[in-house]
Amino acid sequence: MSAIITLAASAGGLEPLQRIVAAVPIPCRASIFIVMHVGAHDSVLPLILQASTRLPVSHATHDSPIEPSRIYVAPPDRHMRLRDGRIHLDRGPKVHFARPAADPLFISAAEAYGTRVVGVVLSGGDGDGAEGLRIIKEHGGLSLVQHPVEASSPGMPLAAFGADDPDACLPVAQIAERVAALCAEDASLVPAPGA
């Protein structure tokens, strides 16, 4: 069984995302899902990230099957949720003033995939991702947070600490190493913190 890796970023999160996707090995057993606060504006995020990896990167499409060795980016003005092996997009209410938002992705992934889920909160303002990361941990998944001192906008990492005690607070370089390791192995059970 492959890992479901979910990443959330906002202000200051682009460079961390680029470093993380650049570290992902080929082949990659995991499926990777990214939410960045882009609102309803046109987004070239998949093109930007594609320059850092050989994995295919694209905006997610509604009701498409989840496949390993792919990076899915939430499209503008759509929440991205996972269930029944498929991606679901919707224009539900904004969460933390954002659509797309991380919490809908994190919570749906935790409920559908439990211990296979890895949640990562990167640089950004406000508190998006904090509740979702708590739910991921509650369902036995792995919760990682970019160290607030390193984040150019530490609001999201600090909110994640306020909501629950994440499994690890790491600089981006170590998060990238952790994600790369999960992509390279059978992740039917997410490694324990510190493993």
Rank of each mutant, 00 (worst) to 15 (best):
C28L: 04
D90G: 11
A22K: 01
E131P: 02
D84V: 03
V145Y: 04
L142R: 07
Q146V: 00
L170G: 14
P68R: 10
S108I: 04
E177T: 04
E177K: 14
A101W: 08
G140A: 14
L133V: 06
S153F: 12
A51M: 05
D42G: 06
V121Y: 11
L49H: 03
P193V: 05
L82V: 00
P193S: 11
A3M: 12
S188L: 08
F161W: 06
D42Q: 10
S108C: 05
S43R: 13
G155L: 04
V57W: 04
A180F: 00
E131I: 05
G140W: 10
A176C: 14
L189P: 00
R29S: 00
D84G: 15
I87H: 00
P100Y: 10
T61S: 15
G124S: 06
I66W: 10
A181W: 07
A23I: 02
E111C: 15
S52A: 12
A109M: 07
P171R: 06
I5E: 13
V145C: 11
I136N: 10
L45N: 08
A110F: 06
M36Q: 15
S123K: 13
S152F: 07
V95K: 04
A168Y: 10
C28T: 04
C183I: 03
D164F: 03
D164M: 04
P16E: 15
E185P: 01
L122F: 08
L55Q: 12
F97I: 02
L45R: 07
L144F: 04
R86P: 01
E131C: 02
P56G: 09
K94I: 07
L105P: 00
L47T: 14
H139D: 05
V117K: 00
G125V: 06
G114S: 08
A130N: 11
D90C: 07
S69D: 15
P157Q: 13
P191S: 01
A168L: 14
P157R: 09
D77N: 03
K137R: 09
I32E: 02
V44M: 03
A98D: 08
G140K: 13
R91M: 11
A74F: 10
V21H: 12
P93G: 09
V117C: 06
G39K: 07
G155V: 05
L55A: 12
H88W: 09
V44I: 03
A192G: 05
A181D: 13
G12L: 15
V121G: 15
P56Y: 05
H147W: 08
E67F: 12
S10V: 02
I87Y: 00
V73H: 09
S152C: 09
Q50Y: 03
R54A: 13
G194H: 09
A180D: 00
H62T: 06
L182E: 12
S143F: 10
D165N: 06
T53H: 06
A74D: 14
V73I: 15
D103C: 09
S31Q: 04
H62I: 05
L170K: 12
L17E: 05
V38I: 01
D126C: 01
A187Q: 05
I66Q: 12
